[in-house]
Nucleic acid binder design. Structure first.
Lengths: 98, 98
DNA sequence: AAAACCAGTTTGCACTGCCAACCTGAATCT
DNA sequence: AGATTCAGGTTGGCAGTGCAAACTGGTTTT
């Protein structure tokens, strides 16, 4: 297994998935974002977005805070330190591979 | 949808799949390779490798030639012009996205 | 008060990927 | 001749993803 192949094999599959890669890339740039903003930016439907967010939370890459903007519910998402680190490692490996 | 997100959404899913990304990256560097070489380099099992190769052939990204090395069968794989172009586009987009 | 609305979640279904096991066709070993 | 080996393909079971539709809990509209 050569260097490139090795790097590809080591890519974090949770982040590699395009839907989640978009989410993580967006969150890496903004400190915090809400569900609707992510939905608008990624153009994913609610269901798909919701399940990707659950997965990212499950592995500890994002923090999910359910709150209210006035009286309507708002879900705030942010990368955890672990998520930020995982994304940076992903970027590094992918760049090295390509 | 911002630039990064847009680029990620446009990534070619056939190539994005890590197993196939390894195959395409390997083939992009060697003109031609055989099945066993790819299996050794990628550490995939025969079944998985075989099905990824079928998929790549199906979309026209690789050419598959079944021949013989002495008396034992040998399957030779090579990127088509289209496959090479698709890989370059994939690399470009991924680099721009990250 | 009933109907429509909004933010999200859950569910059901189709499709894809992964792995192990089995299958094929030809060669080699005993 | 029968059993083993080898290259590679096919199959079956299981997990992950995408989408649409139904659902939940609360709010606004009529």
């Amino acid at each position: 297994m050569n260097r490139t192949t090795q790097k590809i094999a080591e890519l974090d599959r949770v982040i590699h998935e395009p839907g989640r890669l978009m989410i993580v890339a967006l969150l890496s740039a903004v400190e915090q974002a809400d569900f609707l903003y992510l939905q608008h930016e990624t153009e994913m439907n609610k269901g798909t977005l919701s399940s990707h967010l659950s997965r990212l939370e499950e592995v500890g890459y994002i923090e999910v805070v359910k709150t209210y903007r006035g009286k309507i519910p708002q879900t705030l998402l942010s990368l955890t330190a672990e998520g930020r680190q995982a994304f940076q490692q992903y970027r590094r490996r992918m760049k090295e591979a390509l």
